[in-house]
Design a protein around this nucleic acid. Sequence first.
DNA 1: TCTCCCTATATTGTCGACAATATATGCTTA
DNA 2: TAAGCATATATTGTCGACAATATAGGGAGA
Lengths: 240, 240
Amino acid sequence: MFRLKSANLKIKNMLPNSELAITSADKTFLQLRKDIVEGLIASGSKLSETELSTNYAVSRAVIREAINRLESCHLVERKSNVGARVVSISTEGLMELYQVREALEGMAARLAAIHMNDDEIAGLHKLLATHFETVKDGENYYQEAGDLDFHYRIILGSKNKQLISILMDSIYHLIRMYRVQLGMSGPRVTTAFDEHKQIVQAISNRDAELAEMLMRRHILYSKNSLQLKLSIELESKIKT
Amino acid sequence: MFRLKSANLKIKNMLPNSELAITSADKTFLQLRKDIVEGLIASGSKLSETELSTNYAVSRAVIREAINRLESCHLVERKSNVGARVVSISTEGLMELYQVREALEGMAARLAAIHMNDDEIAGLHKLLATHFETVKDGENYYQEAGDLDFHYRIILGSKNKQLISILMDSIYHLIRMYRVQLGMSGPRVTTAFDEHKQIVQAISNRDAELAEMLMRRHILYSKNSLQLKLSIELESKIKT
DNA sequence: TCTCCCTATATTGTCGACAATATATGCTTA
DNA sequence: TAAGCATATATTGTCGACAATATAGGGAGA
């Protein structure tokens, strides 16, 4: 807890360009986001500032800052003088989210086909090959990091900072929350691989329109798959 | 400055469902946003917390909260332990912004053609008629509130909460900043009216695809018009 | 004179306390 | 008994002070 002044200065000087200048609020934000996405903090539950400040061992000011950022991610909703709640998952919310995602990631794929350099495209091919191995081995690791990484690269490949920040900051973690809490898995995994392959091929060929079209369809399929799952999920909840 | 406890309770009870529970941070945020959008605080300039707290007569905590929200709007950028700066306007930034806007508002127009009810569509026609009067009278009031109101209604008409919040929270005020600081006016004003008219017609006819197409083109035209203006603006700045 | 290090200053990050507000509880009254 | 009001409690909002960090400026050494 106690840190020497001189020691800190040394450390700072030794790591001049490190982006690890993580502040306490940053860490708390990341931890909270993780806990929300993974369902450790239930969707729809209230976030008490005092309670969180004791649980995470930081002051309320830090918690407040973290909650503010979570609100930017659309992961929590705040009301003045009342407090913050984790957003609750619903079929409509998911549908709306995927509708927006379809438009934005379709656009990202189109731009990626134009702006990605050859190295980045090669990286995409390499990623596919790695995924193919895991799929072949029957691992369903694919859905987890693999799919995210694939989409992540294409989004970055668009080279449009606005688009990147909207998708990364406002949409992605929300999508992850739905996926994690619904336990995304099943037959989609293998078929999704083929779709990814087609998209990479289109980008390779610099066929922007096709890339967009394929990406939109890919996301549309995911949407339908999730919708089905969610409707079953909610149905069983009503029964209990 | 001083408020009686009982008086406040009375007021609260008298306005049970008022959304005016404006907190000090809210007011400061709104004021700061206004000042940034209108260029009172120059783009690219640093936001000193202590300085702002004296200028706006609130504590630093309030300023910090306001700055956090401004960051969510993409109006300022923060670095840990360094501070916040107003985003600087650039041609690339504008292009990227309008590219995203084209996709999202195009989608909004498509959804609006599907989901707007007849009353809302009637409202759009009425709005057009009002604008026609102002345009005929030679007022260039049109560009200011008029255009914003038009787009605003269509965005809301999409009935997609995610879309609405992204456009309203993350994009709109940034666009306003560009427009205000570039002094949006000129020949676009009258031609834009015709484009609006076409879009409303398409929505009236429930022709979703056409509505999207027209909206995308409308925004593309605006983009080109602004790009021209910005390039001239920056050119003259270099000369001085 | 230039470079590097160290110190001084200013700015941001964090904290605990107090104020204002909302919610829960119990009391009065019809 | 139920409805409405007043108080009590808990929670959020705001504040000023202190700690940690970055930046600017001056001095020592080559």
